[in-house]
Every structure is written in structure tokens, then in C-alpha cells.
Design a protein around this nucleic acid. Sequence first.
DNA 1: AACCAACCCAACCGCATCGGA
DNA 2: TTCCGATGCGGTTGGGTTGGT
Length: 466
Amino acid sequence: MVAHSGGSYTGGGPNDTLPGLPKGSSSSSSTTGGSRGVGVEGGMGKPMLKKGPWTAAEDAILVEYVTKHGEGNWNAVQKNTSLSRCGKSCRLRWTNHLRPNLRKGSFTPEEELLIIQLHSQLGNKWARMAAQLPGRTDNEIKNYWNTRIKRRIRQGLPLYPSSEMAPSPPSQGQSQGQGQVQQAPPLPQTEEPLHQRQPVPHTAIRGRPQLQIPTRSIFQVLGGHPPSSQSSSPSPTPVLLSPQSYHQLKTSFTNSMSLFDHTGQISPSTSGLPSPHSPAAIISPYYNDPNMALAFPGFALVAAGNQYHQTSPLPSPTGGAFQFSFLPQILSPSPVYAASTPTELPSSQMYIQQVVKPEHILQEPHDHEAKLENHGDMTTNPSPSHSCSGIGLLEDLLEQTEHQAVSSNYNHSLQTQNSLLNNNNNNLQKDQECPLKSTDDNGWNTHMGSDNVPEGWQKLRNPKPF
DNA sequence: AACCAACCCAACCGCATCGGA
DNA sequence: TTCCGATGCGGTTGGGTTGGT
């Protein structure tokens, strides 16, 4: 029985491979006509290329070939050796398992933290992340993320429980005036600093159309106040989102760089926003956990003209105020900002920072009652067709984000993430069995209950799961 | 001991990009 | 300019492993 009797194996999908072959036993099956594309003729004189787990003998052949001829020209391997593997498979095997200097074993806490940081900046750019982790492969990182990290995110768990705290936790004092990356443990020396690799040009994200978000006031979205037209200095509108909302928004921005439309433009006629618009500060939902806030920093949405951008990461608010920095060229000039010199940023870019004091912080409704109480604050938002509160608007944004996430690989990925989040409710019962898994419906770690929220803040819950 | 669900991860696939003919 | 093969990347699959009941 041959999986594909007529042609090259590449036409086959996962269904080509029949179950039942134990891992590592494919060698013995290679002559039995078994399930995994064994080395028999595939028709038209073409040898059937083998699929499935690699054997030690195959590994040896590949290692010998690469040692002799070097990497590359992978299709030649099959031609010049007895290996019945396609070039693609050879390359993958070499890259992920056979090449020297591969690091095997569990990720170290340092690596885990770095992965989290990189993912927050790069999104699912596994290869680029792997470039930052010597000896690790993109596949390894991807698997790691898709299992442990996503699970923890889904469950609202801290990525670094106190018992396995990441090294070099940032001191509280460091957060003042410094971007989040500055607080990170030392990163491996690479060809370019992290900030220099971001933003990723849209065109560099292959096959991933940007999210199409209808034009909408950022203040409607975030439930904040529109800026005063008299204000010459845009004042950030701090918003504390639930972890789920935070991750949704962060993921969207990380991957699309703009939530609004494919050009990043907001129609002035529909936004109803004066210019310049005030920035909005998205506070990390983990702001009271230095390590979590390190991994999932706050960020700000700022506007220049009709264009909105995500800023560099924000440190957690400390000492009754917090600061953030962003690229000045995407903001209208403001005399309020003071110079700051984050060291890892491109020298061509000057950063500025602003102190946000608690009295400036927008109070976000925590529950339905709070929504109603805040009605007055929200009525300034011209959004008659939606809930009168910012919650409804954020909900609407997220919902639309979801609806539009249907036609691309990227969006499919987003949906997958959302579906994982959707499972949150299903996991709640289990979660509550474990002290570390004490979360509410919105991904809030119940350890960071309202008592831990700074005075004047309220958490924005998820109106609906996503 | 048996069963089951969740986890883990190697390997696959499709698609995009690149470079040479 | 177009075609095509090689390569790289990210998403997905499926079977083994592990841990809980």
C-alpha cells in the first residue's frame, strides 16, 4: 500500500500518512510497503520519497553529506546519496536536529523570558526569534509558545511563578523613564537591537493582510476622553484592560502595526477627532508583577495627524506615576515632553517621555455597575450606536477584529488564539483547583484583585469572551 | 492496572520569496 | 518579463508520552 501511487509525495497532505507507525521505527518499515511513504517507486519511475521519523542511519547519511558538501542544495542530497528524502525534509532535519551547536533540553528561564519578550515585539516570527536564541530552532520556539505560553496566557497564569522567577528582575526604580526593554535581562548580542527590528514593515509579513478595522475614534475604542482641542500637549489616556483584552489588542498591533485600516489612516470626517489626538496609554494588566509586566509591557497608542501608532513598550507605573516613551516623529510636537535617551534605540531616533500622574488616569469601569456609573464620562464619545461606555466600544473593536480575522493565515492564527481564550471559561473549573490558576472570566489573576489596583483605577473586564 | 485527557514535539504542508535561466 | 527550482517560514497534524483519576 502506497500512500500516493502516482506522483511525488508533495501533493499529499497529512492524510497520506497512516497511523500506527511508532516513532523511530520507520527504518524497519521502509521495506514493508507501510504507511509512511516508504522507499518504493512512486510511479513514472520516480522513487517514492520517504516520510516520517528519521532513523539513525538516515541521519548519518545526511550528516556525512552535509559535512562533505556543506549546507544548501538540499535536493542534491537525495540525488547523490541513498537517502530517499526530499530536500525539504533534509533541510528541516539538519536545521532542527543535526546541525552542530544545537541546544537540546528545556528552555532556561532566561530563554523563556526572552521568548516572551521577543514574541511581544515580533509576533509569530519564529525564525527571527530563533536568531536571538543561539542553538534553538524556530520549530522549538514555536512549539514552546504554542503549548506552555499560550496555555498560561489562556489561563491568566503568571509566566514566571514566584518559585521559578526569571533572573534579574527589574528593580522598581528602573521603570522610571525607561522603556520596558531596558529592564530586560541582557540579551544575546545580535546584529541589531530589538527596537531596530521593529516595526516590521507590512510587506515583510508574508501573506498576512493587515487587520481591517473600521475607522473609529481611538477614544471610542478605548473608552477615553477625546482630547481637548485647546490642549497643545496631548495627554495620554491610561486604560487598564483585562489580560484577554490586552493580549488581543497587543497581538493585533504587533502583527498589523495599525488597527485601523490598511494605510493606518483614520478618516477625519468619520473619526470626529481634532488633531493632534491625544495618546492613550494601555497599561499592562500585569503592572503589579514586575516580571509579568516585563514580558507584557504596556504600550501607548498615539496619533500624528490622522495616523495612529503603537509606541515602544511602557514600563509599569510606579510610585504614583509612570512614564513612557515613544517616537517623536509620529507625534505632534509638544513642549511637555522631556528628552529621554533609551540606550538600545537607534541613534537616529530620539525618544521622549511623559509623566502620567494618577489624576490623569482614566477610570475604567470594572463591571456593569461601574459602566453605568461612568456613563457620564463616556457620553463625550460620539458613539450613539454602541454601548454608552468605553467597554462597549472596546468590545466592539475586538469583536470586529475577530470578525475580520477570517481570510488569511495570520487571521487564522488570531482566531486560534481567540479560540484558546474562548476555552478559558471551560478551564476555569480546573483552574480553581490550583492556587496558581486563580483567574476570573477575563483572565485576571485574582491575586491582583481590586485591592491591588491603584486608587483611581478600575479594571476593564471583557464584556464577552473572545 | 486501565483508561483518558492533556501535553509535547517531530515532521509535514502550503505559501511566499528569491535568484537564475 | 516570465518561468521555475530552491529555499525559508509559519501553521498544522498526529502519534508518543505523561499525569491524573
